[in-house]
Design a binder for these strands. Structure first.
Lengths: 182, 182
DNA sequence: TTGCATACTTACTGATAAGTAAGTATATTT
DNA sequence: AAATATACTTACTTATCAGTAAGTATGCAA
């Protein structure tokens, strides 16, 4: 994969995660990267091709981490998962699901489908993680694991959004709350 | 306030909360309402005027509920607050903060400011509610009230987004989890 | 009954959007 | 050395966007 192609993906992802999919244009990419608009179209003929690939590579990154962590304890896996969001926060970026999901109906179909699949995968991963943690007595919570999983992924997602809007460290609160609650 | 003006606000709010602020145009309003584009500009010269007023009236609605509920018990106020999100879910709408917040950087300044103020107000309201509930022994949780508040508002916000993306009843899980956790 | 405000429409502008067709420079393969 | 693939640029199209200026119909108030 060429350098420019990756630069385009990186920049576009950043734009999506700060301004949203519908608020950036190919000019916002060609300008900073000092190429022509058509060069972006050469790599990604349609904007939705670019959007789709950003979702797919994010999904692959998650699957890779997932594999890397597979032998870790549930607590450690949870800590690592939360650390992913902490990194996003420090970069002032919302997560991809939050960035795209809130305008779901406006997205091209291929992006909707990819986004949904990735989100389901993360949700199921979290559910399994919590179940395992309960079984191994690492965790100790009263809720059903799937309910807890939804609470955790939902609150992490929003914490990055609210951080920007409220300009308080919502993520920090949410992190503390999650860790006390498992 | 004229009929058409309110119709414009209602439709625009719906568009923002399904497709996002940057994915709708004045044509999406003038078309369905059978008026001309310039008629929308007559009521709201700039798109950001429309956006701002939608945030402001949402804030006023919250303040009104707030006042209406002021003599209710913390538990009942919390139930009512959650019921607001339940209604959104049944209408397949994300909340305004979620819809706008995820593309915060793309918003005109007047909208950013209004959105931030409203969100802070809701957060503080929830913090007070939880503190009061603890003091009155209606609630019983280990976290700090402000941490718990952030968890609750964050998870409710995202549950509506994830509901659409994952097509599972994430809101229901989150609601159950919140109620068990206070 | 004249004047003025309200609530529009008609008709337009200038900017920007996504996307494409055809050409070009460079490197790689045959 | 010729052919081909890669990675672009130039130049363009068509559509849509937010926004505005000027005109019009209707009702109400002085």
């Amino acid at each position: 994969m060429s350098d420019k192609r990756i630069e385009i993906l990186d920049l576009a992802e950043n734009l999506i995660r700060t301004k949203g999919y519908n608020a950036f244009s190919y000019r916002d990419i060609s300008g900073p990267l000092q190429i022509k608009n058509a060069a972006v179209h050469y790599h990604f003929p349609k904007k939705s091709d670019l959007g789709e690939e950003i979702i797919q590579r994010t999904r692959k990154k998650f699957q890779l981490k997932n594999k890397e962590w597979s032998h870790y304890s549930p607590q450690r896996r949870l800590d690592n998962f939360i650390a992913l969001y902490e990194e996003n926060q420090s970069l002032n970026l919302v997560c991809l699901v939050g960035a795209l999901g809130s305008s779901y109906e406006s997205l091209p179909e291929n992006m909707q489908n990819n986004l949904s699949e990735m989100s389901r995968e993360i949700r199921i991963w979290m559910m399994e993680l919590l179940k395992e943690g309960l079984a191994k007595k690492e965790f100790n919570f009263a809720e059903k694991p799937n309910e807890k999983a939804d609470l955790i992924i939902a609150s992490l997602l929003s914490s990055l959004i609210l951080d920007k809007v409220i300009r308080e460290n919502i993520f920090k609160s949410v992190k503390a709350s999650i860790l006390k609650g498992v």
